[in-house]
């Protein structure tokens, strides 16, 4: 059970959150101009990285806010918590 430091509410148990998967995937502005492969890459392909993973979490049972987390997928350590729209920090 992870302890996630909500930027607003402070540390809360994982059960209060939902994970929104990999962060920093931007929706293409003109989907109609993309090839099937390019669109498929946006919709389906994820890094599933071993080590530092940048991912989105939502504090659904608390303040309802979305934010980004840098988490080590091996140790499950949360290395950084940062706002939506912010660039991923160096960890």
């Amino acid at each position: 059970m992870l302890l996630i430091d909500c930027p607003w509410c402070g540390p809360r148990d994982e059960v209060e959150f939902s994970c929104g998967g990999e962060a920093h995937i931007v929706r293409p502005p003109e989907p109609a101009n993309l090839s099937d492969a390019e669109w498929g890459d946006y919709v389906f392909m994820r890094q599933n990285r071993k080590g530092v993973h940048y991912e989105r979490w939502c504090h659904g049972h608390g303040c309802g806010r979305w934010f980004n987390v840098a988490r080590d997928t091996v140790s499950h350590q949360v290395l950084a918590v940062y706002a939506m729209g912010e660039a991923p920090p160096e960890v």
Partner: peptide, 13 residues
Amino acid sequence: LAWLENWSQTEWP
């Protein structure tokens, strides 16, 4: 509701 919040907060602020 979570879906709407997701798009409004993260993609179309």
